[in-house]
Design a protein around this nucleic acid. Structure first.
Length: 117
DNA sequence: GGTGTGACAACAA
DNA sequence: TTTGTTGCCACAC
């Protein structure tokens, strides 16, 4: 046994991302940390990239620690992310978000309960 | 099993 | 604030 709860790292990441409330954002490092994978921010990016499109996943609420979107300026993915965020009331200026204002501050109790299942 | 890669993060100029 | 460098760690080849 791996000693884990049976979920793969990817699945833990997806579950955590699903907890981000509409109108809020989180950083890759934050997601990794909450998912129980400290120091693996890069893996979050990969996990999101590998997520099947069928899956409903608010990947657009995940951005870099400094609030900048993770996609190159002008890319199609960036445009989609920006649009989705603005639909939720998040103001994106110059490919950036004011983390101080919109960064998700999870309640650990509810988070653990949500991930418990 | 070594090498390169990545939707990152922290730090230095 | 922006860009460049370094550290990080799992994954693909």
């Amino acid at each position: 046994m791996k000693g884990d709860s049976g979920l793969t790292a990817h699945q833990k990441i997806w579950q955590t991302v699903l907890q981000i409330p509409s109108g809020k954002v989180a950083s890759y490092g934050q997601i990794a940390d909450l998912a129980g994978l400290p120091g693996r921010a890069r893996m979050v990016g990969k996990a999101l990239g590998k997520a099947p499109e069928k899956m409903v996943l608010p990947w657009h609420r995940v951005l870099r620690s400094n609030g900048q979107l993770a996609f190159p300026s002008g890319s199609d993915a960036l445009q989609r992310q920006k649009g989705l965020l603005q639909e939720e009331g998040v103001v994106v200026t110059n490919n950036r978000v004011a983390m101080k204002q919109w960064q998700w501050q999870p309640d650990l109790g509810e988070l653990l309960f949500a991930l418990e299942f």
